[in-house]
Simulated scan of single mutants.
Amino acid sequence: MKRLFSILAITCLMVIGTVNANATTAVASATATVTNVAQEEPAAAEDTGFHQELKKRFIEGGPGFMGIVLLCLILGLAIAIERIIFLNLSTTNSKKLTQNVEDALASGGIEAAKEVCRNTKGPVASIFYQGLDRADEDIDAAEKAVVAYGGVQMGQLEKNVSWISLFIALAPMLGFMGTVIGMIQAFDKIEAAGDMQPSLVAGGIKVALLTTVFGLIVAIILQIFYNYIIAKIDSIVNDMEDSSITLMDLLVRHKK
């Protein structure tokens, strides 16, 4: 009987020990889970915090002026992206084109050179084609055609760029207008209350500051794109002018 009680006691101790160990493991696992969740929550809050904060500030700035500033950003970016794509497609390897035209002139004459230009995209190839098309008349006629068509191509490159500069100037102006309106609202509240309390003017001043900040941000973003576009246009125009001089030299040599 004593042996039976001893076996039962040992069994109970073993069961209790196992239960305690399992409970300790469960508690540790739960603690680790809670810790991981607690660590993940700030990260998730940090990920969604910027967008939520931006949305909150946008709404606080007022849908009227903030919506117009946002519209300036959308339209300005749309025009800028369209211009960047167009300018990148208009970029031509002018040295390779000049060499191909020179080889075509030597082997097949004017028509072969014109065929090379027809099969090449970009304003430089178009200018070459116009110059070669007038080459049968004389060099002066070809030069006038190149100059005239170069102006046309330059206008195509600069198309709609003035709208970007308009949005760059308009966005901060709208922001400053929102600032003035917010300050007027703040002083109206002071006048109506007959007392200078911070709570009365805080809302109007916050709206004023938010519209100014968003207007300046839009202007900065569009200014970066505008400067890139202008630099790209200048590069293509310089390439066009240099290539036009080279074409005239090729036609003079071909005439001789």
Results as ranks from 00 to 15, higher is better:
72 C>W: 00
56 K>T: 07
69 V>M: 03
43 A>V: 14
42 P>K: 07
32 A>C: 03
69 V>E: 03
51 H>P: 11
42 P>I: 10
45 A>P: 13
49 G>Y: 00
52 Q>P: 01
53 E>I: 01
31 T>R: 08
52 Q>E: 06
33 T>K: 14
58 F>P: 05
68 I>H: 05
28 A>Y: 09
41 E>M: 15
29 S>T: 02
52 Q>R: 04
61 G>Q: 06
31 T>I: 06
72 C>R: 01
51 H>W: 15
38 A>L: 13
38 A>Y: 10
54 L>T: 07
48 T>V: 09
48 T>Y: 11
71 L>K: 01
53 E>D: 12
71 L>E: 04
30 A>C: 06
38 A>N: 14
56 K>H: 11
33 T>N: 10
74 I>M: 03
66 M>C: 03
56 K>N: 11
36 N>D: 13
35 T>F: 00
41 E>C: 12
50 F>V: 06
49 G>I: 00
58 F>Q: 10
41 E>P: 00
35 T>M: 10
39 Q>A: 13
74 I>F: 04
59 I>L: 13
41 E>N: 15
72 C>A: 02
58 F>Y: 15
70 L>P: 01
63 P>K: 12
54 L>M: 10
32 A>I: 05
29 S>D: 12
39 Q>H: 07
70 L>E: 01
42 P>N: 04
56 K>Y: 06
39 Q>I: 10
52 Q>T: 03
46 E>I: 13
60 E>D: 12
68 I>V: 05
58 F>E: 07
56 K>D: 13
62 G>W: 05
73 L>N: 01
75 L>M: 01
67 G>L: 03
51 H>M: 13
28 A>Q: 11
68 I>D: 03
50 F>E: 14
45 A>W: 08
32 A>K: 10
29 S>V: 02
42 P>T: 09
69 V>F: 03
53 E>T: 08
37 V>W: 14
45 A>M: 13
70 L>W: 02
53 E>H: 09
38 A>T: 08
71 L>V: 02
66 M>P: 00
68 I>M: 06
73 L>K: 00
44 A>F: 06
73 L>Q: 01
53 E>W: 11
32 A>S: 12
38 A>V: 08
43 A>Q: 08
47 D>E: 15
66 M>S: 04
40 E>W: 08
48 T>P: 04
54 L>N: 07
39 Q>Y: 08
45 A>F: 07
28 A>D: 15
45 A>D: 12
33 T>P: 04
58 F>C: 08
31 T>M: 06
75 L>W: 01
56 K>A: 09
53 E>Q: 11
37 V>F: 11
67 G>W: 07
75 L>G: 04
58 F>M: 13
41 E>S: 15
